[in-house]
Amino acid sequence: MKLYTRTGDEGKTSVIGGRLDKDHVRVEAYGTIDEVNSFVGLAVTLLDEKLFGDILGELEKIQHELFDCGGDLAIVSRKYPFKAKDEMITFLEERIDEYIIEAPELEKFILPGGSKAAATVHLCRTVTRRAERLVVQLQKIDEINPIVLKYLNRLSDYFFAIARVINYRYGVRDVEYERSALVFRGEKPKEKE
């Protein structure tokens, strides 16, 4: 098998059920999901297996799910079934809830960073947000699997949660944005009238 096909030399690419320009928003969307997946792979290389076995297993699962989401976005013919399912979102929500408890209380916005691994996970988060914006654009012009958009939205929250846990387990403090108001769970609840 040859790695190169020359079929994209004129600026078109194959999708499931047809061909599109390489700058089509559909191609941008699933290409950005592939970019997220690459950053996840980088994050995996930066995590110690003994300290982060749970997260490493989750990240591998997420890499497969990102392939599923990208594949779903590459479908232009409705005769092919979608792979992304609601259970993927439920799993992320369960993990986020656990990590929120593990990480120290958060009151203000934080700056992306801390350890190299956490900084890389913040890159995963921000590229996921970009992918999400592209999927929003795509759904305005064409049908998509709606699970993909929900999944990306939840995935960016998951990355935020694990970036904080990674810093916590490494003993690295998150740096609060110094001009931030109280915006998270540490904010005092309003009194009932």
Rank of each mutant, 00 (worst) to 15 (best):
L20P: 08
R6L: 05
T32M: 08
E102R: 12
K22N: 13
G171L: 12
E58L: 14
Q63W: 04
G11V: 06
D48L: 07
G70Y: 00
A181W: 09
F159L: 04
L138A: 11
G113I: 05
A74H: 11
F184G: 15
F91S: 09
H24E: 11
I100C: 03
D97L: 03
Y80P: 03
I62R: 10
R164V: 03
G186D: 03
H122Y: 14
R95L: 10
K108G: 01
K85S: 04
Y4L: 10
Y4A: 06
L20G: 04
E107K: 14
R154I: 05
D157N: 14
V44D: 00
E10D: 10
G70S: 05
D72I: 03
E10V: 04
V165H: 09
L56F: 06
R19V: 09
I162V: 15
L134N: 13
D174H: 11
A119C: 11
K22W: 14
I141K: 15
E187T: 06
V136T: 14
T5Y: 04
N145G: 04
E187P: 00
E93F: 00
L134S: 10
D9Y: 02
D142I: 00
L73G: 06
E178H: 07
G8E: 06
Y158L: 13
L56V: 07
G186S: 15
P104N: 12
I147F: 02
V165M: 10
D54R: 15
S180F: 09
Y168E: 11
T5H: 03
I89E: 09
Y30M: 01
K2M: 01
A43F: 12
K22M: 11
L20M: 14
L20Y: 08
F52V: 09
R154H: 07
M1T: 08
G113W: 08
A131Y: 05
L152H: 00
E35V: 01
I162T: 07
T128E: 01
G71C: 06
K116N: 06
L51M: 13
R129P: 11
G70T: 01
L149V: 00
D157W: 02
H24F: 11
F67Y: 15
R19E: 10
V183Q: 02
R6F: 05
K116P: 06
L123M: 12
K61I: 13
V15G: 12
V175M: 11
D72T: 00
D54M: 07
R125P: 03
L152A: 01
I162Y: 09
P81W: 02
K150I: 00
K83E: 04
E176N: 15
E60L: 10
I110F: 08
N145K: 03
L42K: 06
D142M: 11
N167F: 07
S14F: 01
L134G: 00
P112G: 02
G71Q: 02
D48S: 12
E187I: 02
F39C: 09
V127D: 08
I75S: 03
V175L: 15
T32E: 07
